[in-house]
Design a protein around this nucleic acid. Structure first.
Length: 519
RNA sequence: GCGGAAGUAGCUCAUUUGGUAGAGCAUCAGCCUUCCAAGCUGAGGGUGGCGGGUUCGAGCCCCGUCUUCCGCUCCA
């Protein structure tokens, strides 16, 4: 039996990153020019693995669900989309640093925290008064007449007004002045040694229109979901959809992260796989539960240990959600969000109704009425899923004979190469025979031919990129047309007829088996 | 973005008062032939991250810049 080496999280992560480069999974973008921060390219093994993960998702969602339609919306969208979605506001946080503690804060949050302190003072007054007056206490009256409460409330209103004015006018200097005027100190250093307030544009802007004077600013989408919402009516009308139904898509999204790190976990350009499920209002919680379970099932079907996954329910909900959870995955650097499942209410469609003036409603024949559907969203990062697969399947083993091997136990259906074709020795007509077999089977799945170096070394090379099967052509093959087929994880071999290779490999690497378990 | 560490061949690393840049693995060609890495011979591959400065001379000292890694706020 082989034993798997135990690596610390950091060792494991480093090993995965260098393995990803060494075997052509992930390269840093523009590496010959010193790279581009937080942007990565997928190499000759990475691209097929990524495609396979995407295909597994697409087929599990679109092919396996009659009522889910797949689309492919453009990355460029009308600028108003991002006003409607809230990204224009939410993605323009004003930030400020304290020069002494080197801590960074959101400037508006600092001010809001200050307001919260004043509010706490008011509550204290009220509580005290309540105790003093007992039964006869008129809280509303107290709040409107007590001088200290009134004064504090006035302060709060003034601060709120100033903050609102500044944010609306995009007056960053005004925000800074407000922080100085309020004498807000850094909670860590206790000083008022603040930097300028700076704005980080989390959306990438570009120009539409080739003549610069006439060009207008548009954004690369920071999420794919809006491409689904703006097409809700199109798909509903042209696809003859009946609620509940879903719209799915995969695609690139772009965010200027303040801190972009941890390899491909957090990238500026990344790919999402999202499905928005439109349901009758009031039924959203049952569908939320349904998709929570269905999505977890999709993950577990891959065969990666279930202990690597867990749900994390959000306590604090975003403004558009009435329920939300993450599927977290245990990456080498700990449990982190891999997928989100959100009950988004009718926030998005309603907002688009308001901004576009179009009626984004569904006529429900059962109820004989129209309504804005509620939405349950499932959203998974493809690159994160890629990293999950890579880090969960990377293993360094010590074999019985004391030798080492590095193997990626990638689920066969996702593996970049399905089958290697190896002549045992590079002579005696074995390479020719091997080519002949390769030419027969290559139509069904990705194959790789390798005749260089010893057979053991070639097996290790295939293990390193996660090839589930190796077909070896030996002298016996020339006599009876049989070959050995070696399984990656067990390294066990069996002898099969060449005419069966295609069928057997196809059976074992096919996505069908996975799909039958998720639906 | 801020603070700390680092950057030499595809990978892992040497080269210590600053004096012409090396090894192993990997790659390629040939030989050998053997079902689980590490046989033999040969070859290619580096303007030392990049730019500037000090010096007769810089991989090494200084400055800038880029990238990566470790700590802080948002997200998929």
């Amino acid at each position: 039996m082989s034993t798997v080496k135990t690596l610390t999280g950091e060792e494991h992560f480093k090993a995965v990153i260098s393995h990803a480069k060494e075997y052509g999974f992930i390269f840093q973008s523009s590496e010959i020019y010193d790279g581009l921060s937080a942007v990565y390219d997928y190499g000759q093994c990475g691209a097929p693995l990524k495609n396979n993960i995407r295909e597994y998702w697409w087929r599990a969602m679109v092919q396996m669900n009659e009522n889910i339609a797949g689309i492919d919306a453009a990355i460029f969208m009308h600028p108003t989309v991002w006003k409607a979605s809230g990204h224009v506001d939410a993605f323009n946080d004003p930030l400020i640093d304290n020069k002494d503690s080197k801590k960074r804060y959101r400037a508006d949050v600092l001010i809001e925290d200050h307001i919260a302190k004043i509010e706490a003072k008011i509550e204290k007054e009220v509580t005290k008064a309540k105790q003093r007056f007992g039964e006869s206490f008129d809280e509303a009256m107290f709040r409107s007449t007590n001088p200290r409460v009134v004064e504090n409330q006035k302060k709060i209103d003034e601060i709120n007004q100033r903050l609102k004015d500044c944010l609306e006018r995009n007056d960053l200097e005004g925000v800074r002045q407000l922080i100085l005027d309020l004498e807000i100190v850094c909670p860590v250093s206790g000083t008022r040694n603040w930097t300028e307030v700076r704005q980080f544009n989390l959306m990438f802007a570009t120009q539409m229109g080739s003549v610069s004077e006439e060009a207008s600013t548009i954004y690369l989408r920071p999420e794919t979901a809006q491409g689904i919402f703006v097409n809700f009516l199109n798909v509903y009308k042209t696809g003859r959809m009946k609620i509940p139904f879903g719209i799915a898509q995969t695609g690139k999204a772009f965010r200027n992260e303040i801190v972009a790190r941890q390899f491909i976990f957090r990238m500026r350009e990344f790919e999402q796989m999202e499905m928005q499920y439109f349901v009758r209002p009031g039924t959203e919680m049952q569908w939320y539960e349904h998709w929570k379970q269905a999505r977890m099932q999709w993950h577990l079907t891959l065969g990666i240990s279930s202990t690597k996954y867990r749900f994390h329910d959000h306590i604090k909900l975003a403004h558009y959600a009435n329920a939300a959870c993450d599927i977290e995955f245990e990456f080498p650097f700990g449990f982190k969000e891999l997928e989100g499942i959100h009950s988004r209410t009718d926030f998005d469609l309603k907002s688009h109704e308001q901004h576009s003036g179009k009626k984004l409603q569904y006529f429900d024949p059962e109820l004989n009425e129209s309504y804005v559907p509620y939405v349950v969203e499932t959203s998974i990062g493809l690159d994160r899923m890629f990293l999950a697969v890579l880090s969960a399947t990377y293993k360094e083993e010590t074999l019985e004979d004391g030798s080492d091997r590095t193997v990626l136990s990638i689920p066969p259906a996702l593996a970049p190469v399905k089958c290697a074709v190896l002549p045992l020795v590079n002579k005696d007509n074995l390479p020719e025979k091997a080519r002949e077999i390769m030419d027969q089977i290559k139509f069904g799945f990705d194959c790789m031919f390798d005749a260089k170096d010893s057979i053991g070394k070639r097996y290790r090379r295939q293990d390193a990129i996660g090839t589930p099967y190796c077909i070896t052509i030996d002298h016996q093959t020339l006599q009876d047309n049989t070959v050995t087929i070696r399984e990656r994880d067990t390294m066990q071999q069996e002898r099969i007829h060449t005419s069966e290779v295609s069928r057997i490999v196809e059976e074992r690497v096919s996505m069908k088996a996975l799909l039958s378990k998720v639906s």
